[in-house]
Design a protein around this nucleic acid. Structure first.
Lengths: 106, 106
DNA sequence: CAGGTCGGTTAGTGAATTCTAACGGTTAGT
DNA sequence: ACTAACCGTTAGAATTCACTAACCGACCTG
């Protein structure tokens, strides 16, 4: 099953610090120092979280002189959104099905 | 910050077993036994995961005789999708901004 | 009432995760 | 060349998480 790989993608957004990083990155590309400056953790932690996010394909990095700029990857976000949307639509179908035919299969 | 609360919602989807449960529930409402029957874990684990998912508002339960039927909550899924969509659109804006004006703000 | 099935909860164990602290490497400026 | 600033990595401890096993309560059938 590749559910684990998908879970890794969702897991990247599961941590509060990482979600804050993504939220901050959504406003625009940022360097690690700036990211850590607005968070209650050290730069090391931010760097590790960035590595996880980068490994999940959610962010991309670009070297800019002595600092390194990180930005979100809209494609990965769209993929996550599509999967969630599929769940949503199938859940709606299940709702309608349950209302129209409340028979329990064995 | 309520980032932790949001992180809990994402965290509910972060685990592989829980993601499999959600995927199975997306095809239609199901009882705990049926859920556990198609997963490599015991009913206890499924029940615990169901509690986490229910606590996160992603699933709802309904007593049906001696068994208990679980189904997805499309509203919660839509909320998650909206948040992801907001990230996505803001990331796109950041992309355009970076392309049009590659100046680094202080 | 006795027996069987189904589901939730608790205790306890083993593994994974997150964080800080300290180190080394790279780039820019004097 | 030297110093300063910025970033990534590693080691290690503390917390959190997921799972099995065992127990108890609820519902249906004979």
């Amino acid at each position: 099953m590749d559910s684990n790989r998908d879970a890794d993608r969702w897991g990247a957004l599961a941590d509060g610090t990482r979600l804050a990083i993504v939220a901050r990155l959504a406003d625009g590309p940022l360097a690690v120092g700036k990211l850590a400056d607005g968070l209650p953790v050290s730069r090391s932690a931010v760097s590790q979280h960035l590595k996880i996010l980068k490994d999940a394909g959610l962010v991309e990095d670009a070297a800019a002189g002595t600092r390194r700029i990180y930005r979100l990857n809209p494609v990965a976000l769209a993929a996550l959104r599509d999967q969630l949307d599929a769940f949503w639509q199938r859940a709606l179908a299940g709702y309608a099905d349950a209302v129209l035919a409340p028979t329990e299969e064995d």
